[in-house]
Amino acid sequence: MFEKKKQSYTPTEAQRASDQLDQLVAKKAINPRQAGAYRRHIASHVQVTLKPSYTAQAARRAKAEIVKLTEAGTVTMKSAAAYRAHITKRTRTA
């Protein structure tokens, strides 16, 4: 059916699991409500690797990646805001 629930997911693993859920719903192996519960579990357990400091260019790339993850539904809006704040706080100015 669906892979065992994990303690944490990388963004790539979360996207893969979400795609797998879409396939299971399409095959009617699980219903949309069950898939939603799995998606909420996955979204709350995504771990993004953050660095201790960022250059201006690295910060732009990291923020763009956070936007992509948010749009894909892999990262919640609240987590995305926290990640952006972390990046902004640790960006080195020239």
Rank of each mutant, 00 (worst) to 15 (best):
Ala64Asn: 13
Ala64His: 11
Lys51Glu: 11
Gly73Leu: 01
Glu71Arg: 12
Tyr9Arg: 04
Lys27Asp: 15
Gln34Ser: 07
Ile42Val: 07
Ala14Asp: 11
Ala62Arg: 14
Ala29Glu: 10
Thr93Ser: 07
Gly73Trp: 02
Thr49Cys: 06
His41Met: 02
Gln20Thr: 05
Arg84Glu: 07
Tyr38Asn: 01
Gly36Phe: 00
Met1Phe: 12
Arg33Tyr: 05
Ala43Leu: 12
Ala35Lys: 06
Arg61Phe: 11
Lys78Val: 15
Arg40Asp: 10
Arg60His: 15
Ser79Met: 13
Lys78Glu: 15
Thr91Pro: 03
Arg40Cys: 04
Lys68Met: 14
Lys63Ile: 14
Arg39Ile: 03
Ile66Tyr: 10
Lys51Asn: 01
Tyr54Gln: 08
Phe2Arg: 11
Thr91Ala: 01
Gln23Pro: 02
Phe2Ser: 11
Glu13Cys: 01
Ala35Leu: 00
Pro52Ser: 07
Ile66Leu: 14
Ala81His: 11
Pro52Thr: 12
Thr70Leu: 09
His86Lys: 06
Gly73Gln: 14
His41Asn: 10
Glu65Arg: 05
Lys68Val: 14
Lys51Arg: 11
Glu3Cys: 02
Lys89Ser: 03
Thr88Asn: 10
Lys27Thr: 00
Phe2Trp: 13
Thr12Cys: 08
Ala82Trp: 05
Thr12Asn: 15
Ala37Pro: 15
Ala82Ser: 14
Asp19His: 10
Arg84Leu: 02
Ala56Phe: 04
Arg90Gln: 00
Ala82Leu: 14
Ala26Ile: 03
Gln34Glu: 03
Arg92Asn: 02
Leu24Tyr: 02
His86Ala: 13
Glu13Arg: 00
Thr12Pro: 07
Thr70Glu: 12
Val75Gln: 07
Ala64Glu: 08
Val46Gly: 01
Ile30Trp: 00
Ser18Leu: 10
Ser18Arg: 12
Pro52Ala: 01
Ala82Glu: 15
Gln23Gly: 10
Ser8Gly: 12
Tyr38Val: 01
Lys6Thr: 09
Lys51Tyr: 13
Ala59Gly: 07
Ala64Tyr: 05
Tyr83Phe: 05
Thr93Gly: 03
Ser53Asn: 13
Gln23Asn: 13
Glu65Ser: 07
Gln15Thr: 14
Ala29Leu: 09
Arg40Glu: 07
Thr12Glu: 14
Ala17His: 00
Lys27His: 06
Arg16Met: 10
Ile66Thr: 05
His41Val: 07
Ala81Gly: 13
Ala72Ser: 08
Ala58Asn: 10
Val75Ile: 10
Arg60Met: 12
Arg39Ser: 00
Arg92Cys: 03
Asn31Tyr: 10
Ala58Arg: 13
Phe2Glu: 13
Lys68Cys: 11
Ser53Thr: 13
Arg84Gln: 08
Ala85Trp: 03
Val25Arg: 00
Tyr83Met: 06
Arg60Ser: 15
Lys5Ala: 04
Ala72Gln: 06
Thr10Ser: 08
Ala85Leu: 04
Val67Tyr: 09
Pro11Glu: 00
Thr74Trp: 08
Thr70Asn: 12
Asp22Cys: 08
Gln47Phe: 04
Ala85Asp: 07
Met1Thr: 13
Leu50Gly: 09
Ala94Gly: 09
Ala17Lys: 00
Val48Phe: 09
Val46Ile: 02
